[in-house]
Amino acid sequence: MFKQKIEELLSVYKKSLNTSNAKLAQSLYTKDGVFMPTEAPSGIGSEGILKSYEFVFSQIHLNIEFFIEEIVVEGNMAFAVTSSKGTVKVHANGVEVPEANRELFVFEKANGEWKIARYMFNKTEPKG
């Protein structure tokens, strides 16, 4: 059951990315959460997370799918290892290119609800 709730959370997170919805992404984090994007400063806390996603979405538009490789739940903490693949459209030049990443999510259950506590990703070589 806990894994299903985390899968649902990741599904909503994917929606926030594919719709460039910074407020939705922010709502999925704990109040002291940390978003650690590649080659950019970390977004720390609710306001920092919102600003980070607003910046990311001002630069690119994502169209990706998540693949869950592992979810481990231990009490009120959990982690997920995922990968994602799709495309990214760069707003500056309108070019759409392949996008592929591997991700690590750390979740915390607060007030009965799973939230993202820490999230980081890095690019992998897009596969044809």
Rank of each mutant, 00 (worst) to 15 (best):
Lys31Trp: 10
Gly94His: 07
Glu70Arg: 01
Phe67Thr: 09
Ser20Trp: 01
Gln26Thr: 11
Ala22Asp: 10
Phe107Trp: 02
Lys31Asn: 09
Glu7Tyr: 05
Gly43Ala: 11
Leu9Cys: 07
Lys89Ser: 14
Met36Ala: 13
Asn76Phe: 00
Phe66Met: 10
Phe2Gly: 10
Pro98Lys: 03
Ile71Arg: 02
Ala100Pro: 01
Gly112Phe: 08
Gly48Met: 08
Tyr13Leu: 15
Glu7Gly: 08
Lys51Ser: 11
Asn111Ala: 13
Val56Arg: 03
Thr87Phe: 09
Thr87His: 06
Met120Leu: 15
Gln59Asp: 12
His91Leu: 09
Leu50Ala: 06
Val90Cys: 02
Val12Ser: 13
Leu28Cys: 11
Phe105Met: 03
Asn76Tyr: 00
Gly45Met: 05
Glu113Cys: 09
Ala92Pro: 03
Val56Ala: 04
Leu62Ala: 08
Phe35Ser: 15
Lys127Phe: 03
Val88Phe: 09
Pro98Asn: 10
Ala110Lys: 15
Tyr119Gln: 13
Phe55Asp: 12
Ala92Met: 00
Glu74Thr: 10
Phe57Asn: 11
Tyr119Thr: 02
Phe105Cys: 01
Lys15Cys: 13
Lys14Ser: 12
Thr19Phe: 00
Asn21Lys: 01
Thr38Gly: 09
Met120Arg: 05
Asp32Pro: 04
Trp114Val: 15
Ser11Arg: 00
Phe2Lys: 08
Gly128Lys: 14
Asn76Pro: 01
Lys15Phe: 14
Lys127Gln: 14
Val72Arg: 15
Leu104Met: 13
Lys89Gly: 11
Ser16Asp: 11
Val97Leu: 09
Ile116Lys: 01
Ala80Glu: 03
Asn111Tyr: 11
Phe79His: 08
Ser84Trp: 06
Leu28Ile: 04
Asn101Cys: 15
Lys23Ile: 15
Lys115His: 11
Glu69Asn: 08
Asp32Thr: 04
Lys31Phe: 00
Ser42Asn: 15
Leu104Glu: 10
Tyr29Lys: 00
Gly128Val: 00
Val81Ser: 02
Ile60Asn: 06
Pro126Met: 09
Tyr53Trp: 14
Ala92Asn: 11
Phe66Lys: 01
Glu103Thr: 03
Ile64Asp: 02
Ala78Leu: 02
Val12Cys: 04
Lys109Tyr: 08
Thr30Leu: 10
Phe35Ala: 11
Glu47Arg: 11
Glu8Ile: 00
Ala40Cys: 00
Gly43Arg: 06
Phe35Val: 04
Tyr13Trp: 03
Glu74Leu: 09
Lys127Ser: 15
Val34Glu: 14
Arg118Ala: 00
Ala25Tyr: 01
Val97Tyr: 04
Tyr119Trp: 11
Phe105Ile: 05
Ser11Ala: 07
Glu7His: 04
Val12Ile: 10
Thr19Pro: 03
Ser83Val: 01
Glu96Pro: 02
Ile49Cys: 01
Gly86Gln: 08
Ile6Asp: 09
Glu8Asp: 14
Gln4Ile: 06
Leu24Met: 10
Ser11Gly: 13
Ala22Trp: 05
Asn111Cys: 09
Glu113Phe: 06
Asn63Thr: 09
Gly128Phe: 07
Lys115Trp: 12
Met77Val: 12
Ser20Asn: 12
Gly48Ser: 13
Tyr53Phe: 13
Lys51Arg: 15
Val88Thr: 13
Glu103His: 06
Ser83His: 04
Ala117Met: 06
Gly43Lys: 01
Phe105Asp: 01
Ile71Val: 08
Tyr29Asp: 03
Pro41Ile: 04
Thr19Leu: 15
Glu39Ala: 12
Phe35Glu: 05
His91Tyr: 15
